[in-house]
């Protein structure tokens, strides 16, 4: 009985499935993550159960960021990349009032993103600065805690 001998062939690693998997991983990271382009590095929002998730079409025209005192006690407010103390923030908002006005003459919703370790008085003062330019609708941002 003659046994057929298999032809001698150098074994090769098939890397195509590996490339497939790596591409899948890249697509996953592209979809599920965001590139670090936060306006403020190190700003940690408070964690809460009850805030409402932000709708995609609900981006306010202005966001006031408030950092914790360890980062900048004198100028804790950051708006559009500029740091302000309270007087500076009030001045900035006053100067911007006209451009913020909606077509019907009302003022838009404004969002405050304050660090969880920022002081309550900074938030209260920011709210009063908003009131001074007749912005009455305020959103206070938090990270939604999952149950």
């Amino acid at each position: 009985m003659l046994l057929k001998q298999a032809p001698q062939k150098r074994p090769e690693i098939n890397i195509i499935p590996m490339v497939d998997i790596v591409f899948q991983l890249i697509i996953f990271f592209l979809v599920a993550t965001q590139v670090k382009k936060q306006e403020i590095t190190g700003l940690q929002l408070p964690i809460a159960k009850t805030p409402e998730e932000i709708k995609k079409d609900e981006t306010p025209p202005l966001i006031i960021n408030i950092v914790r005192p360890e980062i900048d006690k004198a100028r804790p407010y950051i708006v559009m990349g500029n740091r302000f103390d309270l007087e500076g923030l009030k001045r900035f908002l006053r100067n911007r009032k006209k451009s913020l006005e909606l077509t019907d003459g009302t003022m838009p919703i404004l969002r405050i993103r304050a660090d969880r370790d920022s002081q309550f008085k900074e938030v209260q003062n920011a709210l009063i600065a908003c009131r001074d330019i007749e912005i009455w609708k305020i959103r206070l941002s938090a990270i939604k805690k999952k149950d």
Binding site: L45, A48, T50, P51, E52, E53, I54, R111, L127, I128, C130, R131, I135, W136, K137, I138, R139, L140, S141, A142, I143, K144
Partner: peptide, 8 residues
């Protein structure tokens, strides 16, 4: 990220 709707 989510929002508390607050009054002034």
């Amino acid at each position: 990220e989510a929002d508390f709707k607050t009054n002034l």
